[in-house]
Design a protein around this nucleic acid. Sequence first.
DNA 1: GCAAGAAGTGAATCATGGTTCATATTTTGT
DNA 2: ACAAAATATGAACCATGATTCACTTCTTGC
Lengths: 218, 218
Amino acid sequence: MAYRETDKVRSRKAQTFDKILVAALYVVAEQGFNSVQMADLAKRAGVATGTLYRYFPSKEALCTEVFQRATDVEVSKVQQALAETSGNGAERIAAALRTFAERALRAPTMAWALIAEPVDPTVDQARLDYRQRYARLFELAIHDGIRDGSLPEQNAQLSSTALVGCIAESLVGPLAPARSQEVNSPEQTRSAALIIAPIVNFCLQGLTGRPYEEKFHD
Amino acid sequence: MAYRETDKVRSRKAQTFDKILVAALYVVAEQGFNSVQMADLAKRAGVATGTLYRYFPSKEALCTEVFQRATDVEVSKVQQALAETSGNGAERIAAALRTFAERALRAPTMAWALIAEPVDPTVDQARLDYRQRYARLFELAIHDGIRDGSLPEQNAQLSSTALVGCIAESLVGPLAPARSQEVNSPEQTRSAALIIAPIVNFCLQGLTGRPYEEKFHD
DNA sequence: GCAAGAAGTGAATCATGGTTCATATTTTGT
DNA sequence: ACAAAATATGAACCATGATTCACTTCTTGC
């Protein structure tokens, strides 16, 4: 025998793998999934087309991977908001919704790609999973809320799905035009708040069945 | 001159046009937009491939037309529910939501095609319009509700968008598996009611900020 | 019945863009 | 330095399915 994978090679391969993912992530964040083309992507990543296929079995698989990575970040942010906010279940859910929306409005193209862009069915399947992950986070929080008395008894699964639908849909509109300028001007930040507050309001009322008064938050 | 379009021809052309649309509508209702293929569609409609292009400039245009026709039916049903239900704004909105959901669950594949199927961007644009049409209907009804005192003051535009998001998303889940059997067994009808009530509940609470008690309805 | 003008046909064409593969280059152990 | 084994290359290939177009068939007015 005269060749065996060594650390040097292993790490180089890992680097290449990352280069590809980073390039893909960049394209998606900038233009969405439909702009991902293997030849172009290879160029951006500084490798040959064929090389892509040494790291991913297909474009679908590559895109799915990108989707999942991007998604993981968002989900964990929401999870974090849910976990780190002090207060009862209802308040924590409100904070999580705000986090979700703020992040989406701050990176509109990426958010649109993850939430609403028409994509290949395989990737779309990943999107369903992803929505379910969100829903499940909320579902747990709703149960907490019921337990601590901040939410009335209810079908937590359906309510959580409704929550996801509300934020997602409410953002699709703002996201579509916003997709042009990636910038974050002060006006945009302000107008974002204008959108977010009523959404959170609606969602919390839907959950609690009582008027929601916004607490102070930064 | 020796040829001028006559009524006979005109009506035959209209018939062909319809045959094509009907065939397309059938495929969509049965399999979704992605199963529409020009050659196949031509066969179903009993015409040649080329003929399709004498009636529609492109597949996109054809699909968009189909989408819009199917959509018009649904939108007008909701509009009807909104208009024909007696009661205050809130009650009429509840009735409209029920109508929307019931119809969707009764024709899951079509509903899925209109609401959630990954489709070509051009058709997808039509979908945005369609959601906005729904939202606008609800928006008007919300204003009515505010006026008649059944709803508190609120940003009707955002609330209406949230409503659309809630029902749409809440139905996507049930629609995905349901898409297999088109049938309408009694159990399905019952399980549909189980889904619909909580959704309407959530939506109405979101709008009113008070617990929603389901009124009697058939 | 005939010529002019349409409408209808469907096999051939074309565009797109993902995927392959014969070849070149690198790496490693001896 | 060399052979073995793997990785990298990118131009050629291929699959799909929409679109075209040269040709045929109808319609119509005279």
